[in-house]
Write a protein that binds this DNA or RNA. Structure first.
Lengths: 343, 343
DNA sequence: ATTAAAAATTAACGCGCGTAAAAATAAGAT
DNA sequence: ATCTTATTTTTACGCGCGTTAATTTTTAAT
């Protein structure tokens, strides 16, 4: 390390033998300076450990290297997992991700977007609540900053959307369940905030019709994010009442299914596709714990990696072109059937 | 809203009828100005929606309102939950939490601390890896910024530590298990990075001795954060080999227990304290999913709220006093026995 | 009304860096 | 060697706000 402490870019420019404006240019984009000067700067960088003051940098720069990442709830493993991958992809590309959780509150989602405004983000990746989101706020934000939605779509909001093709994924599951046993009933929340839930219900109805089966939808009361609890209490009640018209239940998501599995266990109902089983339960999302439920949960795997990477690369595409594309791009990845023991 | 857009503090000071230095003082601490002027500023604030430029603010302020929060792995529900509470407590107090996950990599923990340096945080809350952490880096950081450790302790590092009293909590569980059935074996990872694991093993040994029982420790091979997987594979192998010397297994944490429960289910071993059960399994941490395992997991609840709040309030205490206290404060909260069906 | 203390105003500087314009230099091509 | 073009240097200003010192005003106490 160097002997004297470098206090600012001026001093660093001095010791590296390059003028300050050029050094400034380097820190904005190392490729923008001649290879020989880049080398000088970088060797000085090794000797002196200088970091430009981020606050002074961002104050004057037109666009920062900040990328906002907003998810509805980090406590949900689905979002912590996809948030993780998005974060890493941003770092990989030399950006600074700022991960914000809305902690289950649409109000905080709006607050988070407002906080981000003052950070002048280069762009933002948002997994919105959906119908509970403050649509005006999100749209306004999308008008002011490059905005890519993921997981949950909102019409005419942001410049692009990346998610899973629920129609395809649910059909895949329904097809499998119909082929391998009794046709599935559908279990979901009564008033889901996430638009995927509605897409999945719709997909279930259409798929059942295509298979010439009678659809049967059961909706659980309950608000909030305690999906396992709701799945356990309401699902357990339905099981106890023998409400389900077939021995197969497709849950709108894994967390409901996990709750329902728990209830079934409590009621001594053996879940699975074996001869001695009373009931089949399937989920959707391939929640990290679904491999370890009892029995392991048959589900649909969303392509976390593809969604995260595409969301990030789509945003970077937006950053490069500068001008807003008139067409809103929607990318849907296919779900993959994960056959385990529960169905 | 106001007619003309306010561009900076100068203009805002003008419309509010207060001089800029006083306005600046207000934004630094609203209580520091006379009530009458505060009122003027705040009513102007309502009319004009002006936000001081955070970058310009932080550039010159001695200390920012940023609080760094670093956890080893947000994908672990324990950390996402405690991170959540810490975040909210910071916001509550008017600070800006910056949540960083090290994604299971001690290298990234060091990188995260370095990134935080450039954000001039008022203070930092760190749940370190423990023995895998770059101890020098963490200590150096603690010398430069107010630093409170939580969850995992590191000797002589940071100004305070807040966590759970593993000796007490494990003893509570051992006591319960011995009283209600066969004494527990102990199941853990062979080379745990988290120092709590070592504390728990030690506590198990001491508690067993106190109960005049022979301790039996089983250590699973395996690295990384796939605790459920390790618990399932290694735990399953031990079950199959009938390696455990009693019918009761205390797992070092819930995630291992969840994996083991899954393995037991696969082997058709009935888990629980009922007459028809083969095996008792207990955990530690009261993982959010432990209520929904099959059977629901008997475990120790760490006091998330108390830990989060105390960590935050301890840090704020440090911020106020300014000077570093010579004595490093360690606060341990007691665990609570959560009796469910698995043991 | 007088006075001491508290708070606000005025004026001015600095923080660390982005950026623009003009001049100087270096690199590559002829 | 000459010219063109791409880079760098020099010089200088500005961003938005923190902060200080000297001065004026306000407040509260006598």
């Amino acid at each position: 390390m160097g002997q004297l402490k470098i206090r600012n870019m001026e001093e660093f420019a001095a010791v590296s033998g390059i003028s300050r404006p050029t050094v400034s240019k380097y820190f904005n984009d190392p490729e923008s300076v001649r290879a020989s000067t880049r080398k000088k700067i970088e060797s000085a960088l090794e000797k002196h450990d200088y970091h430009p003051n981020v606050f002074a940098m961002n104050q004057n720069r037109r666009k920062t290297k900040n990328i906002g990442v907003v998810v509805p709830n980090l406590a949900d493993p689905f979002f912590s997992e996809i948030g993780r991958r998005v974060e890493l992809a941003c770092i990989e590309a030399g950006y600074s991700p700022i991960l914000l959780s809305s902690h289950g509150s649409p109000t905080m989602e709006r607050d988070n977007l407002n906080s981000l405004r003052s950070l002048k983000p280069a762009g933002v990746l948002l997994a919105p609540f959906g119908r509970m989101s403050d649509k005006d706020a999100v749209q306004a934000f999308g008008a002011d900053f490059p905005l890519v939605l993921f997981d949950a779509n909102m019409s005419d909001t942001g410049q692009a959307f990346v998610g899973t093709n629920n129609a395809q994924s649910v059909d895949l599951m329904v097809e499998y369940l119909c082929r391998s046993g009794e046709p599935p009933c559908f279990f979901e929340m009564k008033s889901p905030s996430n638009p995927n839930a509605n897409k999945r219900r719709q997909a279930y109805l259409e798929s059942m019709e295509r298979h010439k089966q009678t659809p049967n939808i059961f909706q659980a009361d309950g608000e909030g994010w305690n999906f396992e609890e709701i799945g356990s209490v309401e699902g357990g009640r339905l099981l106890l009442e023998k409400a389900f018209s077939t021995n197969t239940v497709l849950c709108s998501n894994d967390r409901l299914a996990i709750g329902m599995l728990s209830a079934a266990y409590g009621l001594d109902l053996r879940v699975g596709h074996g001869a001695d089983c009373h009931l089949r339960i399937a989920g959707h999302d391939d929640h990290p714990f679904s491999r370890f439920t009892c029995p392991p949960l048959t589900t649909i795997a969303q392509d976390y990696n593809a969604i995260a990477n595409r969301a990030v690369s789509t945003l970077f595409g937006l950053l490069e072109t500068e001008e807003r594309p008139s067409d809103r791009e929607e990318t849907l990845f296919e779900g993959r059937l994960i056959m385990r023991d529960s169905a």
